[in-house]
Design a binder for these strands. Structure first.
Length: 637
RNA sequence: GCCACCGUAGCUCAGUUGGCAGAGCAGCUGAUUUGUAAUCAGCCGGUCGGGGGUUCGAAUCCCUUCGGUGGCUCCA
C-alpha cells in the first residue's frame, strides 16, 4: 500500500508509519473539521483520500483558509440549488460558483424570487444541512453525463457539458440533488455552520445580454455565526456610509429627474470640498512642472473622426449638434485638445517632456441601468494629464507619476493600494518593439519603486500598456482611481512630432494619466472612506461657534469674525436652543470643531473647543486656537 | 438596454379586502435663556412621480412613461 503523508495543523502524519492507517487519519481530519485536502495545486474531497496518487505531502484544508471558505461557500450554493429544486420543481439550474464575499446560483425560473421566497429557501436549506447528507463524488463519461442531464431536463448543464473538452467529468450528489461540478466539496451538508441569502437579481446566462435572463440568488457563508454576524454588520456599515445618503444628509450634492440622470449638482458644501481638492491639485501640478490647460467642451466631428473616437468609442458619445451647418460633438475625452496645444508650435527634443494637465469635464453616454450616485455618471471632470516625452524618458516620467500618485492618494488618507500592469492585448496598434519598450519601462519603474504589482497579461488597452492603481478605503474596499496609460495610437493619428538631435522628425511617446480618475467618482469614494467626517482641511465648515445663552452673542460674533478673517470656514449658532441641541446639530453636520461659548469663556476671553468625537480642548485665547487649527489644516491630517 | 423591486409632505416612512391622505424629523410662530448629541406648544406643508384606463369610488387594480435601487455587460 502506498504511503500517504498528511499535514494536519502542522503535525505531519505518515499513514504507513507508526501503525496509523487512513481510518485514523480520517478521524483526525474529522476532529479538526477539515473540509478538503490539498495536494500540490489540486484539491480533493476528504473521502477520496485513498485515491490520491503520488508521494507529495497532503494538507488538510479547513474553513480558516481562503480556499476552505471558498469550498464551504461553493457547497452552500449547491445546497441552495437543492432547496430551490425542492421548492420549485420546474426550475432549471445554471451555474453556482463561490465569489469574493460569498456565492451565487443562477436559476431559470418563470417567476422571480421574492424576499419571502428567499426566507423559505433558507429554511429549506437549514433542513438539508440538518440531515447531514454526504456530498458524493461520481465520475462518468461526458456522453453519459450529457444523457443524464438531458433526462433531468437540465439544459444549461448539457450546454456546459458540450463545451467541456475532457472525456470524463465529475458530478456531485447530495440528498438526491445531483449537479455537474469539479469539486471539491465539504464532506457533508452539516459542515455548513453559518450562511445567509442576501438578495436576488436578474443575470444573463453566461453574462451575455443576447441570452436569456436568469434569476440569481446571492448568499454568503462563514465559519461561525459570529463571523457571519460581523459580515452583516459590515454590510450595514457600508449602507451607513453610502455616499448618496451622506450626500443628502450633509447637503453635498444632488441629482434631479428633471435635469437628467447621471448629472451632478454640487451644493455649497460639496463645492467647497471640490474647490479645496482642485486647489491642492493645481498647486501640486504646478510644483511638478505640469502646464495647466483649459479646453472647450465641444469640437467638430472631424476631430473625433481623426482621433478614432468615432470608430472605437461611438457607443459612449452623444449625438452631434448642428452649428452653422457643421456637426459638433460634446467631448468624451480631453486628449485631442491637448495634442492640438502641443502641435501649436514646433517642438524640440530639448522641450520634452511636455506635461499638460487639465481638470477637463467630459460627457459620456452610460446606459441608464449602470448609473450610480457619484460613482457612475454621465458628466464628469477628469483630473487628466498628457505627458509627451522621448522613448528614453518613459521610465523616469513613469517614476515621477508613480511618486506623484502615491503622494496624492496618501494626502486623501489612502495608504493601501493594489497595482496592476496590463500588457499587450490581441488587438493592438503600434509595433511590438514599442510595446515591449513601453511595457518594460512601466515594469522597471514599478520595480525601482519597490512597488508590489500583478501583471494582467493581455489586459492593456489596444493603444498601449497601462498601470492601474486601485486604492483600498477604510473598509478595505477596492476602488480604481489612478491609471497611467502609454498611447501609441493618437500621436500617429495626429502626426505628433518633435525635432530630434539628429535633425529628423520623431514621434514622441504620449502618456495619459489620471490620479483621482474623476472628481465626481473620487468625491463619492472620499465620502464613503471618511464616512462624511472629512479631515479639517477638507471640511466644508471647519468650526461652529455655539453660545450657551444670548448673553454671549457679542463675544461669539467677535470669535466667529476672527476665525473668518483668518480664512477658517465658520458658522455660528446663537439660537435660543439648549447647548445640547446645538452640539447635536454640529455633530450631525460632522463639523470638526465646535467652539462653546458661555459666561466662563466670555469673562476669561478663553475658548473651549469640542472635537467631533466629544474630546475637549481649552485655549487661552483665539490666537492659540488659530495656530492650532492652521497647523492641522496645513498638514492636511 | 435587460430582469426584479420601488416612487406618498423638504427628509425617513405608515396607509388593511379599492371607501374622508397620516406620523416623526425639518420649516415657521410663540414660550423658554439653557454648560457637552434632541425644551415645550401651536401652525404650515401633498394633483400619492407623470399620462391614460377599469370602477359609483383608485395612493391601492391594469396599461404606459419618467426616475430610483439591486444585479447582468462595460468602465473614471
Amino acid at each position: 500500500m502506498e504511503s500517504i503523508v498528511v499535514n494536519i495543523e502542522g503535525e505531519v502524519i505518515d499513514s504507513s508509519a507508526g501503525g496509523r492507517n487512513t481510518d485514523d487519519i480520517l478521524k483526525r481530519l474529522k476532529k479538526i473539521n477539515a473540509l478538503a485536502l490539498k495536494s500540490g495545486d489540486e484539491y480533493f474531497d476528504i473521502s477520496s483520500i485513498g485515491e490520491i496518487k503520488g508521494t507529495g505531502e497532503i494538507t488538510a484544508v479547513t474553513i480558516d483558509s481562503k480556499e476552505g471558505l471558498g469550498i464551504c461557500r461553493h457547497s452552500t450554493s449547491h445546497i441552495m440549488a437543492h432547496a430551490v429544486k425542492d421548492l420549485y420543481p420546474g426550475v432549471k439550474v445554471a451555474i453556482g460558483p463561490s465569489i469574493e464575499d460569498g456565492f451565487y446560483y443562477d436559476f431559470d425560473i418563470d417567476t422571480p424570487f421574492t424576499p419571502e421566497a428567499l426566507t423559505a429557501i433558507e429554511k429549506a436549506m437549514q433542513k438539508i444541512i440538518k440531515r447531514n447528507n454526504p456530498f458524493v463524488r461520481k465520475t462518468m463519461s461526458r456522453a453519459d453525463a450529457i444523457k443524464l442531464f438531458k433526462d433531468l431536463g437540465e439544459d444549461y448543464k448539457v450546454e456546459l457539458l458540450e463545451a467541456i473538452e475532457a472525456d470524463e467529468v465529475s458530478l456531485y450528489e447530495e440528498g438526491g440533488f445531483i449537479d455537474l461540478c469539479r469539486g471539491p466539496h465539504v464532506p457533508g451538508t452539516s459542515s455548513i455552520r453559518a450562511f445567509k441569502l442576501l438578495k436576488s437579481s436578474g443575470a444573463y446566462w453566461r453574462g451575455d445580454e443576447k441570452n436569456k435572463m436568469l434569476q440569481r440568488i446571492y448568499g454568503t457563508a462563514f465559519a461561525t455565526q459570529e463571523e457571519l454576524k460581523k459580515h452583516i454588520e459590515f454590510l450595514d456599515e457600508v449602507k451607513r456610509r453610502d455616499h448618496r445618503r451622506l450626500g443628502r444628509e450633509l447637503d453635498l450634492f444632488s441629482i434631479h429627474d428633471d435635469i437628467g440622470a447621471g448629472l451632478i449638482l454640487w451644493h455649497p458644501n460639496g463645492a467647497m470640498i471640490r474647490k479645496t481638492i482642485e486647489d491642492f491639485w493645481r498647486e501640486e501640478h504646478i510644483k511638478a512642472d505640469y502646464k495647466l490647460l483649459y479646453t472647450p467642451h465641444i469640437a467638430k466631428i472631424d476631430l473625433w473622426q481623426k482621433s478614432g473616437h468615432l470608430d472605437f468609442y461611438k457607443e459612449n458619445m452623444y449625438t452631434p449638434m448642428d452649428i452653422d451647418g457643421a456637426d459638433y460633438e460634446i467631448k468624451p475625452m480631453n486628449c485631442p485638445f491637448h495634442i492640438a496645444v502641443y502641435k501649436s508650435a514646433l517642438r524640440s527634443y530639448r522641450d520634452l517632456p511636455i506635461k499638460y494637465a487639465e481638470l477637463g469635464t467630459v460627457y459620456r453616454y452610460e446606459r441608464s441601468g449602470v448609473l450610480h450616485g457619484l460613482l457612475r455618471v454621465r458628466g464628469f471632470t477628469q483630473d487628466d494629464a498628457h505627458i509627451f516625452c522621448r522613448v528614453d524618458q518613459i521610465e523616469s516620467e513613469i517614476l515621477d507619476v508613480l511618486d506623484f500618485t502615491i503622494y496624492v492618494l496618501k494626502t486623501f488618507g489612502f495608504e493601501k493600494y493594489d497595482i496592476y500592469l496590463s500588457t499587450r492585448p490581441e488587438k493592438y496598434v503600434g509595433t511590438p518593439e514599442n510595446w515591449e519598450i513601453a511595457t518594460e519601462a512601466l515594469r522597471a519603474a514599478l520595480e525601482k519603486k519597490g512597488l508590489k504589482y500583478e501583471t494582467d497579461p493581455g489586459e492593456g488597452v489596444f493603444y498601449g500598456p497601462k498601470i492601474d492603481i486601485k486604492v483600498k478605503d477604510s473598509l478595505n474596499r477596492q476602488w480604481q482611481c489612478s491609471t497611467i496609460q502609454v498611447d501609441f495610437n493618437l500621436p500617429k493619428r495626429f502626426s505628433v512630432t518633435y525635432r530630434a538631435s539628429d535633425d529628423n522628425e520623431h514621434m514622441p511617446i504620449m502618456i495619459h494619466r489620471a490620479l483621482m480618475g474623476s472628481l465626481e467618482r473620487f468625491f463619492g469614494i472620499l465620502i464613503e472612506h471618511y464616512a462624511g467626517a472629512f479631515p479639517l482641511w477638507l471640511s466644508p465648515v471647519q468650526v461652529s461657534v455655539l453660545t450657551i445663552s444670548e448673553r454671549q452673542a457679542d463675544y461669539a460674533k467677535e470669535i466667529a469674525a476672527s476665525l473668518l478673517r483668518a480664512g477658517i470656514r465658520v458658522e455660528t449658532d446663537m439660537g435660543d436652543e439648549k447647548i445640547n441641541y446645538k452640539i447635536r446639530q454640529s455633530s450631525m453636520k460632522k463639523i470638526p470643531y465646535a467652539v462653546l461659548i458661555g459666561d466662563k469663556e466670555m469673562e476669561a476671553r478663553s475658548l473651549t473647543v469640542r472635537k467631533r468625537k466629544g474630546e475637549n480642548i481649552s485655549f487661552t485665547d483665539i490666537k492659540n486656537l488659530l495656530s492650532f487649527m492652521r497647523e492641522e489644516i496645513e498638514s492636511r491630517r
